[in-house]
């Protein structure tokens, strides 16, 4: 089951990259996010799985589809011809190198330590407080950046486009 989910995650990620139509790419990316969320659930990371499922598979997919809809008709960009043929070779070479390196890592895995004390909320609020402050800052910066990018010029009756 775990291997099936991992293969599905990589396969749908590759489809998202190789697909010509952007809408299909965005949907493939959402399916890959669902596979990753299931993997996280299987490993016991319930909170990260919920975030992955709701934020990445949900919100980011909506953002991508909105952007694709707003740029409709302009999405046909001529990619390089060799790109589709090079990808399988690149992937195969990467997989071979990956297997060789991981086989060497098998005997050098850090020992499993004892289970940590406290629940998720205790760890998040007490140990990772600085992360939370950083997250609030990043979200605020993102909102301000999007607002700045979509602002309209006032006072002269002009929109932001000058076509």
């Amino acid at each position: 089951m775990h291997l099936f989910l991992l293969i599905g995650l990589v396969a749908f990620s590759a489809v998202a990259i190789l697909c010509r139509e952007l809408l299909k790419s965005a949907i493939s990316l959402a399916v890959a996010s669902i596979f990753l969320a299931l993997l996280l659930f299987e490993m016991g990371a319930v909170y990260a799985g919920v975030f992955e499922l709701s934020v990445v598979a949900g919100l980011i997919t909506v953002l991508f589809i909105t952007a694709i809809a707003l740029t409709r008709g302009d999405g046909d960009v001529a990619e390089g011809r060799a790109q589709r043929w090079v990808f399988p070779l690149f992937f195969l070479a990467l997989a071979v190198v990956d297997v060789l390196v991981m086989r060497r890592l098998l005997g050098r895995i850090p020992a499993i330590q004892g289970s940590e004390s406290g629940g998720f909320s205790q760890v998040l609020w007490n140990q990772r407080t600085f992360d939370l402050v950083g997250q609030v800052g990043v979200i605020s910066a993102g909102v301000l950046a999007v607002l700045a990018l979509f602002r309209r010029e006032g006072g002269h009756g002009k929109g932001e486009g000058h076509e």
Binding site: A45, F51, V56, I112, Q113, G114, Q135
Partner: peptide, 21 residues
Amino acid sequence: ARGNLMVAQSLAITVIVVDVA
């Protein structure tokens, strides 16, 4: 693998939030 799943989850959530922004 190391038994620090809660810390790893909080870091993963941080990555997801930064990614969304």
